[in-house]
Amino acid sequence: MGPRAALVPADRLATRGAPEFFGVLPVAAVALFALNNFVLKRAWPGLVTGKLSDLLVCFFLPLFVSALLQRLSPRPGVAARVAAGIVVTAAIFIAVKTSPVASHLLDRDIALLLQPLGLHTAPNCVDVTDLCALPMLALAWLHARRASR
């Protein structure tokens, strides 16, 4: 049985929300992401804190996208939602980590979104070595499969 078939169909999960994201691991990843960005990176800037955010975001962003999709429409199954989340995450992550143009667009768009709120974000850093975080997408898939059983 392949991984897609192992995920629970949509009708069975329609009343269960998005368990792939609302679980201990993804929420802990989000919390660690916040802690790393706002505290650890400033206290100990370096390779570990720098890569940690990339690893975390590649794990929880597909699940986050999946949860958002579930809010928009509970009809697609977990497999379809998480697959969409993985594709979206991979596309954005690869683009902004390899292309200065994509990185600039991301920074600009986020800045425009945050401007009315008076918030500033740290600019994205184009760094091909950050792509080492992409295998975390597979971990997200495995987690979703396990969480949706």
């Binding site: 989000v30 992401f33 986050f64 918030l119 500033h120 974000t121």
Partner: peptide
Amino acid sequence: LLLGHGGNI
């Protein structure tokens, strides 16, 4: 968090 990552709280 995703939008404001690394910025000032």
